[in-house]
Design a protein around this nucleic acid. Structure first.
Ligand SMILES: [Zn+2]
Ligand SMILES: [Zn+2]
Ligand SMILES: [Zn+2]
Ligand SMILES: [Zn+2]
Lengths: 140, 140
DNA sequence: TAGAATCCCTCTAGCAACTATAGAGTCAAG
DNA sequence: CTTGACTCTATAGTTGCTAGAGGGATTCTA
């Protein structure tokens, strides 16, 4: 039983172009071809595509996914590396969360400077964006 | 008093290429040129560059920054639009924060399935990434 | 059995916001 | 007068796709 690219994409919940892109990036093996040069995917290749898509839905990079796929090919080895990869990914997400948290606070502080009823010339938001310490153009 | 591109970049805390990029994107006016065809920036242009960099440090898009720069050129008008822009930006950041929060929970759930001391073949993390409901390749 | 609709093919370019080259020219100091 | 630091333009790379052009394959209907 084999699937054409549109069916494979449908099953994995992505676009046809995305599937071809993964092949190009080495995440999917070169598939068989029909007489009319159409790509033909086996059940296990469709499952691999779904695996990739699920990893992507967890926002893993294609590099990380490539690594996971390599792990999958050595079922006898220890899975410590997998846990480490996931831990690092969680760490990077927490890092982004912290950055966004800080950003939000800065923006709230800025926003609180003005009610929106001033003239642009006296708006403290614009003023705050100009006269910051961090990116000073203060040169004598 | 005028600055060459390297000085301007240094004052604004960015790379020379970034300054040229902003010019190309229409965020900085076409600067004057020296006899040897070097860009020459005025004090106010350096300040505009710093303004841009500060907005970027708050993760605003270049489109948003372009809008803020247009606001700056109409000091008499009401600043309501500025507040709205900032509010929307805060909203988009909160949206990303929520997405990351969900992501982290999903990853933690996944991570908790395995201690890292299994063989890859029986690792529940890999298994969880394969046999998910959301991207099923379950076709009979 | 012809035509139309729907798939599929390759190749190329675009998105955002830079970054990094290559290959050349400018300028100040020693 | 040569070295080194700076600058110039133009082009390609980054990430993970997406969209199109311009064709061929397959399938359904009339
Ligand atoms: Zn899934
Ligand atoms: Zn205001
Ligand atoms: Zn700043
Ligand atoms: Zn495991």
């Amino acid at each position: 039983m084999s699937y054409r690219i549109g069916e494979a994409a449908g099953l994995a919940g992505c676009k046809v172009e995305t599937v071809r892109y993964y092949e190009q990036m080495g995440l999917l093996p070169t598939p068989a071809r029909s007489g009319g040069n159409f790509r033909l995917y086996s059940q296990s290749q469709v499952e691999q595509l779904s695996f990739i898509r699920h990893c992507r839905s967890l926002d893993m990079s294609l590099d990380n996914i490539r690594e996971l796929l390599r792990f999958r090919e050595m079922p006898g080895k220890s899975c410590a590396g997998i846990n480490q990869l996931i831990d690092e990914h969680i760490g990077s997400i927490e890092c982004r969360m912290n950055a966004l948290e800080q950003l939000r606070q800065q923006l709230r502080d800025l926003r609180s400077q003005c009610s929106g009823e001033q003239s642009i010339g006296s708006c403290q938001i614009l003023h705050g964006l100009s006269a910051c310490g961090c990116h000073s153009a203060e040169v004598s």
